[in-house]
Design a binder for these strands. Structure first.
Length: 260
DNA sequence: ATGGTGGCCCGGCCA
């Protein structure tokens, strides 16, 4: 199979982070990129700028909050694009899917959930249920699938800086959230990072507050899941910390996977 | 971490 590099990056406003994205695309030259938290309405999406760097774009955004996009150096089958979870009424722009060659790319900005027990937490769990049922269907017609995104769930204790704080009752690590992620993965979706790395303390997000990055007080919540059919083709996975070191960074850094 | 910073549109929401 042709070598393909994919990345997921929550840019926390593409308006602010476009220079970072341009710089990083030139540096790493990924084939396919999923962006989250673009925070841009569609008419303002910088597709011509990205085209200048060789990337086609499909996007689904809104003002102020949320917003997702897929960029690709190869043709995107626009007919096959899906915006939102089919059958799940949702004002929030958190889901986009597209086909590139024989790869199905699903890009998710999973609900944060605020705090365990809140209305937003319930919405997160309902939303993840709907994603589960949709992906179960989607996998039947698209076995070669990459499900990437900001999952807003740290898979296990290796993925948090302090498991005493980030425990079974805490948002992003609670029992129900981890069970929902497990249920998604039980569809035959594998955390590419864990196919190649066993160590803890490798993070993709650090809070802007309390100098989180400098002290490496982070979480690994940005994931690239590969389907059963791609598992043996997954040759590498890493988190690229570099853009987090740049001036005025996103609080997230890209999670990458290589298929070959 | 009842705190802290950052992005949005304009003091409060969301992360």
């Amino acid at each position: 199979m042709e070598t393909t590099t994919l990345a997921s990056w929550n840019v926390n406003s593409l308006n602010v982070r476009l220079p970072h994205l341009e710089e990083w695309l030139k540096l790493r030259q990924p084939d396919i990129v999923g962006l989250q938290e673009t925070k841009l309405e569609d008419p303002r999406f910088p597709d011509s700028v990205l085209a200048g760097l060789g990337y086609r774009s499909v996007f689904c955004g809104q003002k102020t909050y949320n917003g997702v996009a897929i960029l690709s150096r190869r043709p995107i089958d626009e007919i096959s694009c899906v915006m939102g979870i089919p059958g799940f009424e949702d004002e929030q722009k958190r889901v986009i899917a597209a086909t590139v060659g024989d790869l199905r790319i699903v890009n998710l900005y999973v609900v944060n959930g605020q705090d365990v027990g809140t209305e937003k937490y319930d919405y997160k769990l309902r939303w993840l249920d709907a994603v589960h049922d949709w992906l179960a269907e989607e996998l039947k017609s698209h076995p070669k699938m990459v499900v990437m995104g900001d999952f807003n769930i740290a898979p296990d204790d290796r993925d948090v800086h302090d498991p005493a704080v980030w425990n079974e009752n805490h948002i992003l690590t609670s029992t129900a959230e981890r069970a929902a992620l497990r249920r998604l993965m039980d569809l035959g979706l594998h955390d590419s990072f864990r196919l190649h790395n066993e160590e803890g303390g490798v993070f993709s997000w650090w809070d802007y507050r309390a100098a989180g990055f400098r002290r490496n007080l982070g979480l690994r919540i940005d994931l690239c899941l590969v389907s059963d059919a791609l598992r043996e083709h997954c040759t590498a996975a890493e988190i690229d910390r570099e853009p987090r070191t740049w001036e005025r960074p996103s609080d997230h850094t890209p999670a990458m996977v290589t298929l070959g």
